[in-house]
Design a protein around this nucleic acid. Sequence first.
DNA 1: CCTATCGTGGAGTATAAATATCCACGTTAT
DNA 2: ATAACGTGGATATTTATACTCCACGATAGG
Lengths: 178, 178
Amino acid sequence: MLVVYDYSMELPRIAEWALHCCWLLAQTEEGRPLPRRKLSEFFDLPEAYLAKVLAMLTSAELLMSTPGARGGYRLARPAGEITALQIVQAVDGRHTFFHCAEIRQRGPVGLTAEQCTRPCGIARVMHEAELAYRDQLALTTLSDLIGGAPPASQQRAASWLGDDARSEIRTTSRLPAV
Amino acid sequence: MLVVYDYSMELPRIAEWALHCCWLLAQTEEGRPLPRRKLSEFFDLPEAYLAKVLAMLTSAELLMSTPGARGGYRLARPAGEITALQIVQAVDGRHTFFHCAEIRQRGPVGLTAEQCTRPCGIARVMHEAELAYRDQLALTTLSDLIGGAPPASQQRAASWLGDDARSEIRTTSRLPAV
DNA sequence: CCTATCGTGGAGTATAAATATCCACGTTAT
DNA sequence: ATAACGTGGATATTTATACTCCACGATAGG
């Protein structure tokens, strides 16, 4: 069998990180903001890269950041008002998967640019599929996500965060190993 | 404003080529098969790479290929029975955009693999959006696409192909330049 | 049966996208 | 004043994607 690519062009992993970070923040909507270091430890993700993700979420006004000592991140709005689509789009520079290369303008009988006032039929079809994708993503909010998580998972997250909040003088080396 | 990526991760261009090739083949459903060289000239696309695309469409049984002199490609089925989704999936090794990295298993309080019998909520949401995307793509067939093309475009395509079919002894250098 | 035409398939290269790291700076709480 | 934090720019590394090259195999037609 012929395979040119047998790997997948994934949706950037950054989107997955963003969704998980927002999920965690939605579960800690009380007390003081969660610093980036905590987030990176919680998920065992590189902190410096996570900084980019969080900054993008902040500039998209999904998160609020508090600089300085005891600073960190929290949701900028109630969890019920933040959709999966907003999160994905905030970190995913792309706003369309399909970018028409105007193949119809190429070749010996290609159309002229003037003839191409409307998008070509193929671009239209792809565009409509993307709309369906986005519409579906827009249906889920962070509230839905935390509602659907298994209790065990939420329990452990809360306890780890709470535990740490109570003993904030601890160095990170005292935290449980991965 | 903070921008980490300001370019777009596009749907592979190969999918666009595949759609255009099928579109053209759907318009020439008579006479002898269209050789690869004709296709590559028509769209001014590199022939060697197009070979991959066409081979994938053939092995997906969307196209039929005839080897040897006077060979070429034609649709394996009526245009009304070939959907945009089938074409995209035939050339796009990926069948999902989102691949869950199991972030929930990472970090100090990550879940164990045994606890993860069901996909995580985030993966579920992303998966459902992809289903919506695919469902939408499956609604359009090649017949719809050629029905929606502007008459001028179809006219010129038919005449270029017809012209050439009538004078098949010509060398390609006699063809109109791009 | 011989040769030009055409499809198949594998290996290899180049480019751009995505991931990740580093460091210097600014802000705030204590 | 200083330690804890977020911001932002520059840069390295890895991987996906786009594209090329070449040798092989099959068929039509003389």
